[in-house]
Amino acid sequence: MLTETHTGLDSPRGNWWKPAHKSERTWVAIAFGWCIVLFAMMPLWQVKGGQNPSGIRRKVEPAAFFARTQEFIKQYQIGDDRGMPIVAPPPGSDIYLTAMSFQWTPILQLEQGKEYILHLSSLDVNHGFSLYPINVNFQVVPGYDYGLRVTPTAAGDFRIICNEFCGIGHHTMVGRVIVVDSTGTVPSQSGGI
């Protein structure tokens, strides 16, 4: 069952299409089994898991998306922070967040345990939606509407960091998401874990 003993620098002659030793075959079989487990986890989580990036995905004109965001702000604005509107939409609604160099518009105020459909898009270049400190990350691509059903599981004062390089002011691009609990209050710590 063995070919002539040789190194990887030698040309194997004749027929080398021969079965491997049992130990090697065992490892290949185990590795194959593990690969199937790795693979199966993804469709399984689509069905059973709570976190999937599938979403509602659409093409959109950046200007149209921004106009819809402004309409959304007008509809549900409850205040502002440093000039940025704070918007408190009703649970279950479609909510809009526009990324542009170098800000996230608007500030969203959500209720803990309620589902929203969060629409993400960009007015100019690629941005990265990174919810801190939850550490949830999505790519925000101009021309595309990424609709994600999100349910905040904990109240708090969260940040949105831009984690896709978008130009010289990239590191100043921080947004805010507020999640209130069932009594309508926000736990006092800011952005902490």
């Binding site: 995905r57 659409r58 093409k59 149209a64 819809r68 479609d94």
Partner: peptide, 8 residues
Amino acid sequence: TLPPATLP
């Protein structure tokens, strides 16, 4: 083939 957004 992505459809256009309806922006509900």
